[in-house]
Nucleic acid binder design. Structure first.
Lengths: 193, 193, 193, 193
DNA sequence: TCATAAGCGAGACGGTACGTCGTGTCTTACG
DNA sequence: CGTAAGACACGACGTACCGTCTCGCTTATGA
């Protein structure tokens, strides 16, 4: 496979892709810029011209990889929407979970990085989920007096917690069960609070 | 098992305490072994004799600090127990949250570390919370047909998610609100699933 | 053989010169690589990239310093040549004697180092002295049947012995006396052995 | 072989003997006190109670080993005395040469050590040789107007120089040749200076 | 017969230097 | 001009050694 476009955007993608590869192979803490550079047959200057630090590079690789993910799923029912959106999240955690959890520690120390991640990937996922709740309320599926705002984060929080804090698998069946036993009962109950 | 380190145990505590101090002052990534060593007026050999690497040292400091935390709170009501236990967690996150979230990334790559953390701190917190639910069910506060097993993780997961993924504060008021609007309704609802 | 270290050659000289400075200031055993590095405003990697160990660095500094020393002295007489050459040696011992005597112990354990020193500095000094004897014999100053081969080492051996084994000073006057009373009588005596 | 006398002088000899063993095995620079201690199944305190530093220990080992060496050889002729005494030196260099040459570097930095070595081993050897010249002059073997003072060091200096500076062997035949071609001609020549 | 002390083995300790490795900056030469 | 190659300053890591220290154990006496 030749590389007809070495400069510009194509090179950038190669670099980020190499970064992601290394990231998945050795993990965040054992990734070195030299390792990325040598895998991409690049020069350190080429990397540092684009991203001022190692963590910027890693973030860029993450952002680049999560930029074009499936969003807006309208299946017609809240349950369908939730299961679809949470299934997407599950799939993304399979691919990027280890990177995400490594980045998490950085977020507290690097506000700029935090904004990037939170305004990017996380906001996107929140949007998808809150939109599903909003549509359900518009459709009358959810009582109008139920406060749907805090509901979107329940499933993501538990998925993340189970997977990374507890180290237990959390699959599509678990998603379905959680939606049916926790999220929907809270969304549909007659009187809130 | 004899104790050749009889006087050494005290030194160990000093070292871990110094580690924790430095950890809180400069954060996980900026902590240096030299910094710990100089604060404890110790020698690097003294540290490396006990913990083979910097991350082992940090883990030990974390484990040591979370070993003797308040547990078993019996306030007489599920609501009181939950709020007390979650308040403890909030307080622990204030003190060790940054370390915990940094450690999280390591868990996936270091199974031994994962066991240590999960069988230690996390299991302890789960115990406290599941015991609260069990007592409530024994008392008849919760209907006997409700499956309380998955309930304990809801609040910790959301606390963790809010604080580290979303970067939003989560205080005692939020705990109370979450318990009242999410946990208790799920625990007390007449018919489960 | 290309020279990827083109600018590096100058750096190399700076490093060796700094090494020699430190060597003369604090002595062989108290020299530290960090000391050299900090004096040269260099990095340890810069030193270790070139010389794999501290002793290699010191040897290189010594070899570099003794590479371009005055040689070929032709004063017209054997006595003059000898006094000039031995005076050079005296001067070199003043500058590098401590390093040389420290190196001496290493020579027995490090054959490569031994070759370097012996084929370098020592061979150079032997050349100068044996050439002086050869010229004297060519001029007829020394009887043709005298074996001049073993004569060159007499004065250096005694100078070295006096200075380092006995710890007594050995100056230009002593050189003159030694040449007049020992070397020249042996060289000029009518019948050898 | 049992160790009936563990304390006192016997232990001291064991320690010095272990030191000498290690010294001959790994050389001065690679000798460690821990190595000596572990070979002698001793404790560091036991060593440091007797000798305040590593170099003191090594010097003591050397001094202990060279304490009882053959001295005063009176063969009846200067030639015989010289060859006998120089043969002793050759033998001692075979056994302790590497240690001596390593110590040489220390002498310049450690005046106390220098006195010990110079007033001990070296003075002893000088005594033996100058005594041989004195006896020869008393016997009339050497003309009374010859200054024998500087003659004693010629052979030791050359032996040392050849062996350590040049790295060439110097055996009994070389001693004989040197005595016959250099020392005796200088001692016996009719008019000095 | 016992206790009190002195020497000992074992090895932890503070300190210092070593040699390695990673980051981010910079220079050189090539295309 | 952007790039590959890689030298460079900085600084942390983990190791090794020195000389000091503390701990029990053993032995060798003195009561």
């Amino acid at each position: 496979m030749s590389t007809p476009l070495r400069g510009g955007q194509a090179r950038e993608d190669e670099l980020l892709s190499a970064t992601l590869d290394v990231l998945r192979e050795v993990g965040y803490s054992r990734l070195t810029v030299d390792g990325v550079v040598s895998r991409a047959r690049a020069s350190k200057a080429t990397v540092y011209r684009r991203w001022p630090s190692k963590s910027d590079l890693i973030v860029a690789a993450f952002v680049n990889a999560t930029r074009d993910l499936p969003s807006e799923r309208d299946t017609g029912s809240l349950r369908g929407d939730l299961i679809a959106a949470l299934g997407d999240i599950l799939h993304e955690l399979d691919r990027f979970g280890d990177v995400m959890v490594d980045l998490l520690g950085e977020l507290g120390r690097n506000p700029e990085l935090a904004s990037t991640i939170r305004d990017g990937y996380i906001a996107m996922r929140r949007e998808t989920l809150t939109a599903a709740f909003a549509r359900a309320q518009d459709r009358g599926e959810i009582p109008p007096d139920v406060d749907v705002k805090p509901l979107w984060e329940l499933a993501p929080a538990v998925i993340f917690f189970r997977r990374f804090n507890l180290g237990e698998p959390f699959g599509v069946d678990d998603v379905r069960e959680f939606v049916d036993n926790v999220v929907l009962p809270l969304a549909l109950r007659p009187s809130a609070g």
